[in-house]
Every structure is written in C-alpha cells, then in structure tokens.
C-alpha cells in the first residue's frame, strides 16, 4: 500500500515538473512577469559570482604577480636601473645638443662679427640682490679689461666691471648702475639705456619729438666705447612723459634672458678682425 502511494507521488511530482517545464517553455510565458521574478535571484547569484570572480582573480594575480614570478622583481630592478641610466644618457645628450647649438651660434657670431670677440662661460652671479652681475671664466690674462662690452647672439649683455687675472665680473644692462648709449632703429632717436629696480631696463632722454612706439627695436648707438653700433638691446614697451619733463622715457624689454645665459662673448676690440 505504502509503495503504491510512493509510486503515485513520484508520478505526480514527475508530471508536475514536466508540466512546469512545458508551461515555462511557452513563448507567452517568456515575457516579463516570470523574468521579473528571476531578477532578485539573478542579482544575488551574480553578486556572488562577481565576488568569487574577484577573489579568484585576485588570487590568480597574487599567484602570478607575487608568488609564481620570483624572477620578475629582479628583472624589474634591472629594468629600472636601465631606464634611469638611459634617462640620464638622454638628458646628457640633450644637454650636449643644446650646448652645441649655443656654441655654434656663438661661433657664427664670432666669425661674422667685424670686431674681435672672446668666448667665455658664465660661472656665477652676484651674491647680492642689489646688483645684477655675472662672473665669467675669462680675465685679464685672456685679454679682458674693464669697460669691455659683453654680448650674446641675442643681444647686449653688459660691460666688464672688474677684471681679475682669471675671472671677470660683468655688470648687466639691467643693473641700476648701468648705462648704455642706444638708438631706436626705426626713428633713429637716441637715448640712454639703464637698469631698473625690478630687474628690467628703460631708455631715458628720448627727445620730446621722438616718434617712438611700443615694439620698436633698440640698438646700441656706438657712442659708448664698449659696443659697436647696431647691436640689439631690446624692444620698447610703454613710452611715457611726466609733466614738466624735458625728455620722454620708455620701458625696455631686453632681448637677452639674463637668467639663462651660459656663454657670452666679450668684445675685446672694436677694430675689425683680420
């Protein structure tokens, strides 16, 4: 009797399962309601899936990245050393290329200039904030003397202030104690370039009739003995005239970036070189 009941129940269960599968297979029942019921389950299961995948992946990564690759650390160290060495070499090569470019410009200027020039390297700057000077590695032994002009391919740098046997000090045109006779290229008006408090320069004693405007190029006039005529000094900024002043003056932006000078040329003689 019991066996019959069990067989009967088995049959019912089997029948219900087949029926359920059959019903679920119906296209009409593939639509939203049933799928909607499955969502929470999918959500929970997929969350677990993700968790397990993450753990498995992490373990795999840990295995592959830290445990199984004993040699990678050594290789990494070696590659880092190689990279540092190559970066260093690249910087040195870039420096050499830049130095070559600067020296080539200096050499070109030295060859083409009508006057005698002496190349020198900048070895230091003024220790004080009150003066704008440079130290160069050429002195009286090399033919450098006080008051000689100092230039770069970009333009006028300054004048030799002190000349020791092996080193010299150059007063920049941006120093407030510096004065260089100049003229405006376009209008031919003459003036005097001197340094300002803020490390720039200005041109003073321009005639009231001077038609100087912003952007005009200022050159050496050749009236002071240090520089030949026509070397670029800078470009004019705002031109001003105070009431009752007899002259105009203008701000001047030097052509040379004094914070980046590494090599200069000393105008040893204004005589034409042979």
């Amino acid at each position: 009797m019991l066996r019959q009941i069990i067989n009967y129940r088995r049959f019912i269960v089997l029948f219900l399962i087949v029926l359920l599968v059959t019903v679920l297979l119906f296209p009409e029942l593939q639509k939203r309601p049933i799928y909607f019921l499955g969502r929470p389950v999918v959500f929970v299961i997929s969350g677990l899936q993700k968790g397990l995948t993450w753990i498995g992946g992490g373990f795999g990564n840990a295995w592959e990245g830290y445990i199984n690759l004993v040699s990678v650390r050594r290789e990494n160290e070696r590659l880092k050393q190689d990279l540092a060495r190559l970066q260093n070499e690249t910087i040195q090569l870039q420096e050499a290329a830049l130095a070559h470019e600067r020296l080539r410009e200096l050499l070109d200027l030295k060859k083409t200039a009508a006057h005698r020039l002496l190349a020198a390297a900048v070895i230091g700057r003024d220790p004080s904030n009150w003066y704008r000077t440079l130290m160069i590695n050429k002195g009286s032994r090399d033919g450098v003397a006080v008051e000689m002009g100092v230039i770069t391919p970009a333009g006028v740098v300054g004048r030799v202030l002190k000349a020791g046997p092996a080193v010299s000090q150059v007063l920049l045109i941006t120093d407030r104690n510096s004065a260089v006779a100049a003229l405006i290229q376009r209008t031919r008006d003459e003036g005097l370039v001197e340094g300002t408090e803020n490390g720039l320069a200005r041109i003073k004693y321009l005639s009231l009739l001077a038609d100087a405007t912003e952007g005009d190029l200022v050159l050496t006039s050749g009236l002071t003995g240090s520089f030949p005529k026509g070397l670029p000094i800078g470009t004019l900024g705002r031109v001003t005239k105070k009431d009752l002043d007899l002259f105009k003056q203008a701000e001047l932006t030097p052509r040379v970036d004094f914070s980046k000078i590494e090599e200069v040329l000393v105008v040893v003689s204004l005589d034409e070189q042979k």
Binding site: D126, P127, S128, W130, T133, D175
Partner: peptide, 8 residues
Amino acid sequence: LMDLFSGG
C-alpha cells in the same frame, strides 16, 4: 668675501 664677488 661677498664684496669680492659683488658688483657693489
């Protein structure tokens, strides 16, 4: 020392 290297 500073005066030796200064423009002042």
